[in-house]
Simulated assay, not measured.
Amino acid sequence: MDPDDFEDGPGTITPYEGLPCYRPASLPPEIEYTDDIIRVYGDAQYALGRLATLHRDVDNENLLIAPFVVREAAMSSQIEGTNVTVSDIVLHDVDGTPQRSAAESADVREAYNYVDAIHEGFERIEAGESLSVELICDLHETMLKDVRGEENRPGELRDVPVYIGSPDRSAQSARFIPANPQTVDLLLEQLVSYMNGGSYPSVVDVAITHYQFETIHPFRDGNGRLGRLLIMLQLYDAGLLPKPYLYLSAYFNRYRQQYLDYLLAVSRDGNWEQWITFVLNAIAEQAIDAYNCGIKLVGLREQYYSPFPNSPAVRDVVDFIFEEPYLTAPRAIDVTNRSRQAVYDAIKALEAAEIIEEISGSERYQVYRAPAILSIVESP
């Protein structure tokens, strides 16, 4: 990283043991409401509002929450270079499962932890907590629990420098060196204070604070995933997102190079317009995609209900396969509270209707898959 490249940027270079660490400027920045920003702001607000109407019209919110959370976790993990799929995450707690993808077991566990962190974050905000350094650290610990070495210290702010875009993990080849570790705690406190106050409309502030969080890079690892989760939590806290329905990782993964370049352009040149436009476009596009995905899931459930108007146990199992598209009878019995015989009869009926299919090939511990649901959730 060449400090001369950042002379025109809004931040400053704060050296640490000879390393040129970049300290972002205090928030808020001065933002000009250009035509592009006004346009994408309107698009994002409209798309989020339409997504909220879908939530209001669904009688069982888990019909949407479970598929969307797993989808976001899979895409977020893929950004980090893994092969984790939706199926891998759903299958995580299913014993005797069929062959998984090529993903490493530690990567699958990490993706599953991300699911836990999403639920934890939303539950704590819903319970009345504000965004805080403590909450952020707790979510980081949940994300990295049992999957990283002690050197990455889950839940603890970093006290060492980190290097971004360094092929050999050296300072010399780094594209960017985030904030001096001695300033991380102060910078994060200031950022959280801004998150709970803000100066601009919430969707604009989300773009601003996501840049700030990633530029501070407060942890040794997991900053990208946690930063994307914080976007959802901020939108939820602002009343713009009813539940964790927004999987921004899909957009950031699709435009990964632009994401990295535009982040860097804010630090180098103060190019906030380009960055804010990019993030608001992501929010708008993914909110539209989530709405369309939700409509498909709601319609598919009605289609599955239709042949069984007088079979409440079958309908309960149908609801369950939307939450967990890989099905085992013991798990379905636990979740639906139906009798063993009722669940087995329901599974038999759903298999006969080709709504689920047996995939384990086992005589005793059978695993079923709901292919149409997976097709919707796993679509890019």
Rank of each mutant, 00 (worst) to 15 (best):
E151M: 10
I177L: 01
A117V: 05
V279D: 02
V204P: 03
R268S: 11
P242G: 13
L188R: 06
I376L: 04
V86M: 01
V40Q: 11
V367K: 04
D57Q: 15
P181I: 10
P312D: 09
R256A: 03
A111W: 03
V377R: 02
A74D: 08
I164Y: 07
R225F: 05
E141P: 07
A329S: 15
T209D: 05
V115M: 04
P161Q: 12
R268C: 02
V184H: 08
Y262H: 13
P15R: 06
G121N: 11
P15C: 00
P67M: 07
R225S: 02
L246G: 08
S267L: 10
A284S: 14
A44V: 06
V343Q: 01
D88G: 08
V314L: 03
L263T: 10
V298M: 02
I376H: 09
V108F: 04
G222L: 11
P15F: 02
L135S: 01
D93Q: 12
L135Q: 05
E357K: 11
K145S: 14
A66I: 00
R254H: 05
G222P: 08
A353N: 06
F252G: 04
D205N: 12
R254S: 02
V343A: 04
A103S: 10
Y305E: 10
N62W: 12
E141K: 12
V84N: 03
F278W: 09
V147H: 04
L248N: 07
E120N: 10
E150C: 00
N113Y: 10
Q190E: 13
S267D: 13
A117M: 11
N196F: 05
G227S: 11
C137V: 04
I164S: 02
L19R: 08
P24G: 00
L186F: 09
T34Y: 01
L246V: 04
D116N: 13
E80S: 02
G198R: 03
N310V: 02
R301M: 12
P67Y: 07
Q78M: 13
A179E: 00
R331G: 08
L229F: 03
R23M: 12
N337R: 14
E134C: 02
Y326D: 09
